[in-house]
Design a protein around this nucleic acid. Structure first.
Lengths: 135, 135
DNA sequence: GTACCTGCAAACGTTTTGCTGAATC
DNA sequence: GATTCAGCAAAACGTTTGCAGGTAC
């Protein structure tokens, strides 16, 4: 998997100092942070970077198809790298943790449903909000 | 299917004039309106009703389990009656129209996935964003 | 040198809330 | 008569944007 900075070069995005920091943080984030959380992490490396720049960069990366944006529940949008194998999400409602999963069977059923209604799938979103089984 | 006003009586909600109007509009709405659209419809019947009241009533009805709240994509939350058979949504990205569907097979697969990860499902959300097949 | 980027502050759209008076039960 | 509700305006929240200066290519 290419690093994000390389992907940005591919897309001819200018590698400014703030962007380098943001990309580095994204690189190191295995979770699904939102813009404010990302900004917090960025601030720890370089204090002057504004939240507006974080938002602008995230939007840009999403438009370029480098990041995927998710809106779980009501809260702020959360981001993850787009160049992963497609997957859906289990969200632990007690902790906010996100677990990725993949089900070809479900994917295929969705295809069938869309086709049966006369549509082609543009995208989809499956989120299962869960609670640990044994307390 | 009971009318919404009856459900509110069951939950001991006070039937004020603004609420009667909001409930009536909900009763007559077969689509999935958001708060502002609902307010617009309410205004056509009774001009003095405030948006805050619409929001407060929607929140109350959701808490009582009378309405379900959905956040499709980015936009405002949209509402529908909760006392329908469970279903998911196809969203036509060209028109914003929402089509309901139901797949027991998908439901069951979700159960299995959650269980396999050691979780019980609290709720879930499946939205398929689609485009008409034949132009 | 040009196009793009930044920080700041202000504005945005959606939703909630404090207040004070009024209506329901 | 107690409790809940209404409208209004202000605030909260996440996000976007206009501007004026600065930087990458």
């Amino acid at each position: 998997m290419k690093n994000i900075t390389a992907l940005c070069k591919d897309h001819k995005l200018r590698l400014t100092a703030p962007r380098r920091v943001i990309l580095k943080v994204l690189e190191q984030s295995a979770d699904h942070p939102d813009a404010v959380e990302l900004h917090r992490r960025v601030q720890m490396i370089e204090a002057g970077i504004s939240l507006a720049t974080v938002y602008r960069t995230l939007k840009l990366l999403e438009e370029k198809g480098i990041l995927e944006k998710h809106s779980f529940g009501d809260g702020p949008a959360r981001f993850e790298r787009a160049d992963q194998e497609h997957h859906d999400h289990l969200i632990n409602v007690e902790t906010g943790d996100v677990i990725e999963f993949r089900s070809d069977a479900i994917e295929q059923l969705q295809e069938e449903i869309a086709r049966k209604h006369g549509f082609a799938i543009v995208s989809h979103r499956l989120e299962i909000y869960v609670r640990p089984l044994r307390k």
